[in-house]
Nucleic acid binder design. Structure first.
Lengths: 197, 197, 197, 197
DNA sequence: GATGAATGAGCATTCATTCAT
DNA sequence: AATGAATGAATGCTCATTCAT
């Protein structure tokens, strides 16, 4: 047993259940349909209890944003078949993740989009979402540099621009809800573009 | 005199000003912040007058969706320098449009995203937005086929998949707000991927 | 028919009935117990209707303050037996008023005290109440000067100080709820103090 | 060692700090703004602890009323220059007290007024405040009788009525917030009225 | 004695919608 | 065609109070 798994503070447990309830509510009806009362009911607590843990609706939404960020770190698609190239493996993991989010975690995608839209008007949300996206893009850029170095990716790629293409394409694919078999074709084209010859 | 320029019905004029007001309100505060009273006030009419033209808030939002679709048809970036290839010109026009929407028409982008999210929960909106996206994708696919035929684009491109990559990348670029100079790099990479050799 | 009596605007009528209801509620339970819902119910309108006329509770309280000021101008005790002296008649009228407010209009007194207390924390209320008190004091000072000039009041009275004594004593009598027969004795003493010899 | 100075029970100490916090809260925002949570926070205890000492908000207010009564007994303005007359000294002390409360202890005045208003609706408060006022009036009446007997005050004064005038005037002066130099003029007029010749 | 957690009841205010005029 | 007035049903939030620990 380690500190992360033992005795979850009952108070933290309640916070978490409220955040989960809010997350589900946003996934179902968007921010437009988010009602503190519904969230409290879904978490089976009194509305006053919700406000005991989250003094305002804004604070609750902030909690949802943090939860979302944690989910993107924790949840991933199945690992790809090893290819012998670190960069290619990373790219395939990315493909796997996108497909996984698209097919198994569509709630995560919807809430992410809602939060991205909200981040434009709410600095507190932007402070959580922007670093998340930045981290994603950074990882992809690093992957591209590694792939070029390995000689697996085309040498004439511009790593920042290529990372932008990937984040934009993945993000767009999730937004547009491109699912199988379309997704497979997209991945093939992306790989053809990145790979040497 | 043709149908487009002759005397705009004063009733249509009012509908349009209400829809514009609603569009601006959504761009500013999202659906979450859309209030019929604010829309009426912005259009300088009584709230009851708004309901005379749009019996429900839903109907007003439907009007906004149609207005948005019309805007995407009407508004475009500056035409590119002719390249001698129809397909390449079309691609460059697409690049010009994306840059134009991103930099000059961010309201259009925001409202589009809001409507895409809403379309998941509202069939009436989906009935307007989905054909719009389908038409866009269809045009891109046709462009790719033409480019292959012209010998300008790579012959091994899978037209539907490549069209999906383009729509996804453009959509993602608009969502993420990738602006100059990043956008230029994205276009360069996309062109390198599509072009022969 | 004159402008004051003919056709009371039905909208003004509703405002008035809401203010009256609020006045009665304050008289009964103080500001502490003032509930917009109770006021609306007492005026037999929906709570939303109350907010149509008074956007905030503060605005409603402001309306009550203005109503109170108007009541003090409109309502008076029975006129005293003419004494031959203008100043003395005015003093007797003042006595009559105090007794009248104390015995017949205790609601007016209670609400006045509540508003005086609130004026200390609310500038909008102070802007209505302070001039009312100032006007009262000013009238009394003028009366004292007239009485001195007539030779009815003591010549060595300091008009401003004497006016302060009168306003303070009247105000205190209303606050403490000194009623008959005590009130009569107070008036006798005040008159003995003011009158020559 | 006497009962008043020896070891203040720590429990009494906490009650006192809660009452003081409530007193300050009422002085600042009136009963309307009195919140048990704010009082507890100001006294730096948990809200549940407040309810341990004062089972209800009413009980806490009762404690404030008793504290207020004790303050009026304990706090006084500076003693006046001895005049040779016990009654006159007492009157001057009264003047000194009024000025002191008005200028140095305005919180005491505000809370007193709040409690007087509340006493009209709350018998428990009336049971504390009324005797306080009665005692004050009684002392003034006694002073007037003494002054008449000493030959310092006018012989034709009606002691109960004169005591009422004094309590009313003092109370009114505090309510209206008549401060220097106006207060001095009021005292001069009152003395001129009371004194022989 | 003291407190963190919890809640029922309620509060001012809002909102889309309706309707008589 | 247009509007002032009106409203039922919420909505986010608050508050005094309780209770297990």
């Amino acid at each position: 047993m380690n500190a992360q798994t033992e005795k979850p503070n009952p108070s933290d447990e309640r916070r978490r259940s409220l955040v989960c309830a809010a997350f589900e509510a946003i996934a179902a009806d968007g921010f437009e349909g988010l009602r503190t009362r519904s969230v409290a009911a879904r978490a089976e607590v009194n509305i006053a209890t919700l406000h005991y843990y989250f003094p305002t609706k804004e604070a609750l939404i902030g909690g949802v944003a943090q939860y979302l960020a944690a989910q993107f770190v924790a949840l991933h698609g199945p690992p790809p078949v090893p290819s012998g190239s670190v960069a290619l493996d990373r790219l395939h993991q990315e493909f796997s993740d996108v497909q996984f989010y698209c097919e198994q975690q569509s709630d995560l995608v919807v809430v992410m989009l809602e939060l991205q839209l909200r981040a434009r008007r709410d600095e507190a949300i932007a402070a959580i979402i922007d670093p998340l996206m930045g981290h994603w893009r950074g990882g992809l850029e690093q992957m591209i540099r590694a792939g070029i170095e390995e000689g697996v990716f085309r040498a004439d790629l511009d790593p920042p621009a290529a990372a932008s293409v990937l984040t934009a394409t993945f993000s767009g694919a999730l937004t547009l809800g491109i699912s199988e078999p379309g997704l497979e074709g997209v991945f093939v084209e992306l790989e053809r573009w990145l790979l040497r010859q």
